[in-house]
Design a protein around this nucleic acid. Sequence first.
DNA 1: CTATGAACATACCGAATGGTATATTAAACA
DNA 2: TGTTTAATATACCATTCGGTATGTTCATAG
Lengths: 209, 209
Amino acid sequence: MRDPERTRAAILDAAFTEIYENGFQATSIDDIVAKASMTKGAFFSHFHSKNELGYALVDEVLKDMTLDRWIRPVAAYKNPVQGIITRFRKIIETTPEEHIALGCPLNNLTQEMSAVDPVFRDKIQAVLLMWIEETEKYLKKAQAEGYLRKNVNTRQVAEFVVMVEEGSFAIVKNLRDKKVYWALYESLKQYLESISERPEATQDPLVRR
Amino acid sequence: MRDPERTRAAILDAAFTEIYENGFQATSIDDIVAKASMTKGAFFSHFHSKNELGYALVDEVLKDMTLDRWIRPVAAYKNPVQGIITRFRKIIETTPEEHIALGCPLNNLTQEMSAVDPVFRDKIQAVLLMWIEETEKYLKKAQAEGYLRKNVNTRQVAEFVVMVEEGSFAIVKNLRDKKVYWALYESLKQYLESISERPEATQDPLVRR
DNA sequence: CTATGAACATACCGAATGGTATATTAAACA
DNA sequence: TGTTTAATATACCATTCGGTATGTTCATAG
C-alpha cells in the first residue's frame, strides 16, 4: 500500500500542474499536497524545501518533456531541417487551447526564477544548452547530407531556432491568439528555407492547416 | 516641500527597479517604500493596492520604455528594415552587462503575471499589440518605398520581429552569454534580408562588432 | 516476531506581507 | 488667519506560508 516512488511522482505531478497554472511563487506547498491528496509530512519526507522540489521539477520533469516535445521526434525525418519545421507545426496543432494561455512550462519557470535563484538559473540553463546542442546536431547532420548550406554557422542557427521555439510560446501566451502561431511558423519556415541548400526539400508533404 | 507627483514618480521608479531585479511577487511593498525612502502611508495614498501599482507600471512606465527603445528610434532611418536591424544591434551594444541577466522588464512581468492576473494580462497585451502595430507601420512604409518585397505579409513579419526582440532577451537572460545576442542578431538580419527587395540596402554602413 | 527506520499524518510556529486605522503635517482656499 | 483636505507617517492586524516538532503506521531486516 505504501509506495514512496509513486508518492514522489504524484507530488511532482501535482506540483507541475499547479506551478504551470499559477507560477512557482504563487503556488504554496499546501496547494500542492492538497492537489496530490497528501499531507505536508509526505511532502517533506521527499523534498527538503520548496526550492528543492523546483529543482527536481527541472531535472526530472521539464528536461525530459523538452526532449520529448522538441528533440526526439525530429529524428524520424530524413531531412532534419524539415523535421524541425514540421515538429514546430505539429506542436502548434496539438497544443490544447487551455494550454496556449499558459505558455511553455520551462520558459515560465525560467522567466520567473532565473534572476531570483542561481540554482534555478543553472539548472534551467543546462536544459536550454542541451536543447540547443541537440538542435545543432540535427543541423550538422542536415549540412552533411546536403540539406543545409555549408557556410551557415550551425550553432548560431540552433540558438536562433530554440529562441524562436520558446519565444513563440511566450508571445502567443500573451496575445492569446493561436493564429499568431501560424504567422510565426511561416516566418521560421521562411528563414530556414533561406539557408537551405535545396529549399524544395523542406516542403511539407502533408496538407497544412 | 510636499510634491505628490514627484512622490508618485519616485515610488514608480523604485518599484520598477526592485521589481526588475527581483520580480513582482518577490518584491514587497516594504521593499519599495524603503528604496524610495518613504513610508507605507505615502504608498497607499497613491496606489490602492500592490496590483494597482503594477498596472500603473505597465501603463505609465513600460509602455513608454518600449516605444523609446524599440519603436521611436527606427523613424530616423531611411530604410525602415535597416532601422529595425540596426536598432536591434544598438540595443545589444548599449545594454549594460548587469542588465543582461535581468532580461526585458516587460517580458519578465509578462511571463510572471500574465497567467495569474487577467488585468495584467490585458494591459501587457495592449503594449505588445502596440509594439507589433508600430513595427508593422514601418514595414508597410518599407514596402511602399521598395525596400521590402510586396508579397510579404507585413503583420506576420511584425509579429515575428517583436517575438525575436523579446525572445532574444529572454534566452540571453538565461544563457548569460552576450555572444548569443550576436548570433541572434545575425539570424534576424539574415531573415529580414531574405524578404527584402534590395538586400544590399540593409547593409550597415558602420563597422560591426 | 520483533525492532528499527522510513514513510506519512497532524498540529503548530515564527516571520513576512498586504493592508488598515489612526495620527500628524503641510498646502490650499474661504 | 483659520479651516479643511490631501499627503505623509506610525503602529498595528490578520493571514498566509515555509518549515518544524512530534506523533503514528507500515514495511522490511534480522
